[in-house]
Amino acid sequence: MIKDITLGQFYQTDSVIHRLDARVKLGGTFLFLISLFMFRNPFGYALAIVFLAMVIRLSNVPFKYMVRGMKSIIFILAITVLFNLFMTPGNVIVSIWKLKITDAGLKNSIIMILRLSLLVTGSSVMTLTTTPNNLTDGLEKMMGGLKKIKVPVHEIAMMMSIALRFIPILAQETDKIMKAQMARGADFESKKLTKRIKALIPVLVPLFVSAFRRANDLAMAMEARCYRGGEGRTKMKPLIYADRDFIAYGVLILYFVVSVFVGRLKIMNF
């Protein structure tokens, strides 16, 4: 149950994609997501799938890791498809009892499936190939302009990276706490909802206590090393664009222009 959390999961290996600057990957993911919403015909999606497949191939991350992210959205996917399938007005193709499937509904559901799965897979390529630290560094750099209007960009980025860093730790701790309470006869598998909610108290209290303790310790450790926010702080590994990053930007923009152009051609329009 707890092992299924894949948020911010990083897959350790070496590849061109892993070595890319985090900003390129952030920007690229953003462009890719935008492109998905601009297509008007199947060719655009075909291009997007081919492009994503190539990136995954280059990233050396096993395909099964990519698909794992999909598991979490199966429920959302199913609901969207159901609603689109039965609620869209149009020419009726099949009708079962009072439920009618229309051609427009079918089309919409297929588009939804494509969009959502490409969306999730596309963003998991980014999280799987970028360490959380790099990711927040990239965000911090990209949002640098906001500093001028007094947005605490560094602090936000620091909070994000700490939060990401603590997800696996807290997940592990939850597991241990649950075991310790189960050893005292706590029942987390009761069929009654009220009982199940009540059973969470013995888990949540120690978890919160330990989260606060950890936060305290971390704050102390940071202060002991004279951390005082982003002002005048330099990086040990500053993000510097290399040649490959510019090439990647080029490829991304090329993909974006071509796919949007092809995707909006008026052939086999939706």
Binding site: K176, M182, R184, G185, P202, V205, P206
Partner: peptide
């Protein structure tokens, strides 16, 4: 299961994990 866990008692390493 419950009877088993009362027969075989297990005390974990960190007391903080069970005091609530």
């Amino acid at each position: 299961r419950k009877a088993l866990r009362s027969r075989v008692g297990l005390v974990f390493q960190y007391p903080e994990h069970q005091l609530f």
